[in-house]
Amino acid sequence: MSGGGGNQGRGPLYRLYINRLRRRLRPEAVPHHVAMMIDGNRRWARQLGYETAAHGHRAGAAKMREFLRWCDDLGIEVVSLYLLSTDNLRKRESRELADLIDIIAELADELSREPNWRVQHVGRADLLPPDLARVLAGAQERTREHTGLHVNLAVGYGGRSEIVDAVRSIIAQHDREGGSLEELAASLTPEQIGEHLYTGGQADPDLVIRTSGEQRLSDFLLWQSAHSEFYFVEALGPDLREVDFLRAIRDFADRDRRYGG
């Protein structure tokens, strides 16, 4: 599925339509956990004639703050944002990467100041610049006791690496407890792996949204999204509108989830 894009529709009729969409959403049909892949920031900056991708990344970060408020207003309890992959750390041009790291640090700190939101870093802190790792750790610690919207920030994240790290953690724990590899092989379960993921203890995402028309996972929540629903929006990340978001939620609510059947 895909939604519209652009910045049109800010008048009274638009707000009327937004309110109508909201009223038609049954609270029990709203997803518990939404994962968002904000994509197209660089293209957005290029199309508008900006000299650097940083303008797009800043606009994308502003859109993520707006997106989280939409989710919170709708009663969604967990949101996972894909901000920086392990591939990005290797492949992005150094100036763009430095700008992106600064923008992510600002975003994490701002989100940790929101009343009652809980921020959690999801990814490999050891792969990140020390300053960014400290900001993410500080945001997580500052909000540890909060009980409102749970925001996962996937930074230095890779889905395949997460699964490998989970298996390594299970093996190390089993070894500390004195078990044999044969016993581990016989007893290993999907639930056990799930408990050792970066998102251990959280419900898997019900809905994964990606902007910019791209229709791929890009190594995001590979294990957790096994039974997720997907919704692809044509709009570039900074152009995402509330109506696009609500249409995604409406589409999710109308689907017959079969959980792999």
Rank of each mutant, 00 (worst) to 15 (best):
D87M: 05
N88Y: 01
T199G: 05
I104M: 11
G49V: 01
P205R: 00
G260E: 12
H146R: 14
R144C: 07
G200V: 04
E141C: 07
E141D: 14
A98I: 01
I38N: 12
M36P: 05
Y82Q: 00
S187V: 10
Q202C: 04
E229R: 03
K63Q: 15
R10D: 13
S225Q: 08
Q8R: 13
R69P: 00
H227T: 09
R216N: 08
G5Q: 03
R241N: 12
L240W: 06
A185Y: 09
V167F: 15
D219I: 14
R160W: 11
L13M: 15
L89E: 03
A62L: 15
M36H: 07
Q192S: 10
G123M: 03
L107P: 02
R255L: 07
E242A: 04
R176P: 06
D73T: 00
A108C: 07
V122Y: 11
I249Y: 09
Y198P: 10
L21F: 03
V243L: 11
D39V: 06
R144Q: 14
L25Q: 03
S80R: 05
R15G: 06
A53G: 13
L217M: 12
G56M: 15
L81R: 05
I193A: 01
I38K: 12
Q202G: 00
S180G: 09
E66L: 11
Q8S: 13
M36C: 02
I18W: 02
A98R: 04
H33W: 05
G179N: 10
E141F: 08
L21T: 06
D165S: 09
L16S: 08
E114K: 03
T199C: 08
A35H: 00
G4K: 10
L81E: 05
V119L: 06
R144P: 06
G148H: 03
I193S: 04
R92E: 15
D109H: 13
V164Y: 11
V79G: 07
N116Y: 11
P130N: 11
G213E: 06
D39Q: 07
S228V: 15
K63G: 09
G158C: 10
N152R: 03
L68G: 01
Y17H: 15
L149S: 01
V164I: 13
R257T: 00
F67G: 02
F232Q: 08
D109N: 09
G5P: 10
F230N: 05
